[in-house]
């Protein structure tokens, strides 16, 4: 089963868990599984059906935005990670 590392601020919605086991064949399915386990996460990751502009999903060291985005394929052994772009103005 793949796993996903939760960024520190969002661990408030996963009961403090930093890493959550997830299932799914694509990034989209993995995030659907994650947000079905922890529904309060959804609004902070998604804006409608799209990832929020500052939310990035990595597989290993690779930003899936530069692969196939939400359709990027996920292997069972993959370690995913949600990483925010920190921006202000």
């Amino acid at each position: 089963m793949a796993s996903i590392k939760i960024p520190t601020p969002l661990r408030a919605y996963t009961g403090g868990q930093a890493v959550v086991p997830v299932s799914g064949d694509t990034v989209k399915e993995v995030l659907q599984d994650l947000t079905s386990q922890y529904p309060d996460l959804r609004q902070h990751i998604f804006d409608g059906d799209k990832l929020r502009s500052f939310v990035n999903v990595f597989i290993g060291q690779e930003d899936t935005r530069f692969r196939d985005g939400l359709e990027t394929l996920v292997d069972e052994a993959d370690e995913l990670r949600i990483i925010p772009s920190i921006a202000g103005g």
Binding site: P7, T8, P9, L10, R11, H44, P84, A87, G88, G89
Partner: peptide
Amino acid sequence: LSLLGYFHSHPNHPAVPSEFDRVHAWPHF
């Protein structure tokens, strides 16, 4: 330790979050 949050400056503007700040923010940070 915990990554508690981040700081940034507002040059010649108040120390009050902008709409850009809000759109790019998460709770519990």
